[in-house]
Simulated assay, not measured.
Amino acid sequence: MRYGEFKLENWVLENIDELLRDSELDTVSWTALPYWAENPRLVDLEELIGIEVHHERPLENDRVEFFCDLSLIGIFQCSILFGSWKSVIHSRQIEWVDEESSDMWTEIGLRSVGTFLARIVFDLNTATVVEHDVVAIPHDIYSALDSLENLKAEFEGDG
């Protein structure tokens, strides 16, 4: 999406730290981000793999509000309580393990996918973002499990 010289993708890449600074990620259910990985926080954005703008609407004073779905691959720093990461996280996700970890917590960096919804208000006169909010979009794993069970039941009924 572009308004004049403004490029949304560049703005997201330049401001991802600020966008996610106040987001509570610890309670978000994401695929391949294990429950045992406590207090995840994005420490390195590897790639912005999806960006979708929707629900644009004009506001007063030459401003536009829109919503933006963001999908990214990044390294999330997490803490593992009382245990080895090897028993709870796929080894290909691990980027680093902090050798200075305590007996209680092991700090790790793991690669995962994050999905977010941002609300952005853009000022057409100054060509700048003047407001933004972002929330993590949880992956609805339980609905997916229900769908798989329904498929299984359908196939068993055909036999």
Results as ranks from 00 to 15, higher is better:
41 R>W: 02
42 L>N: 06
43 V>R: 12
44 D>Q: 10
44 D>R: 10
44 D>N: 10
45 L>I: 02
47 E>L: 09
50 G>E: 15
52 E>P: 00
52 E>A: 05
53 V>H: 04
54 H>I: 05
55 H>Q: 10
55 H>F: 09
55 H>I: 00
56 E>R: 02
56 E>D: 04
58 P>F: 13
59 L>V: 06
60 E>Q: 04
61 N>A: 14
62 D>M: 04
62 D>L: 01
66 F>A: 11
67 F>Q: 06
68 C>L: 14
70 L>M: 01
71 S>L: 06
71 S>K: 10
73 I>Y: 05
75 I>H: 14
76 F>C: 05
76 F>H: 14
78 C>Y: 12
81 L>E: 15
83 G>R: 09
86 K>V: 13
86 K>L: 14
89 I>G: 10
89 I>N: 12
90 H>I: 07
90 H>C: 05
90 H>G: 03
90 H>W: 08
91 S>G: 08
92 R>L: 06
92 R>I: 07
95 E>L: 01
98 D>Y: 01
101 S>K: 01
103 D>K: 06
103 D>L: 11
105 W>P: 03
105 W>C: 04
106 T>Q: 08
109 G>I: 00
111 R>G: 03
112 S>Y: 09
113 V>K: 06
113 V>D: 08
116 F>G: 02
117 L>Y: 01
120 I>F: 02
122 F>I: 10
125 N>S: 08
125 N>H: 08
125 N>I: 04
126 T>L: 07
126 T>H: 09
131 E>I: 08
133 D>W: 14
134 V>K: 06
136 A>P: 11
138 P>N: 11
138 P>I: 09
139 H>R: 00
140 D>Q: 08
141 I>A: 05
142 Y>G: 00
143 S>M: 00
144 A>P: 02
144 A>E: 08
145 L>I: 09
149 E>I: 08
150 N>S: 13
150 N>W: 10
151 L>A: 15
152 K>I: 12
153 A>Q: 15
154 E>C: 12
154 E>N: 15
155 F>S: 14
155 F>G: 11
158 D>I: 05
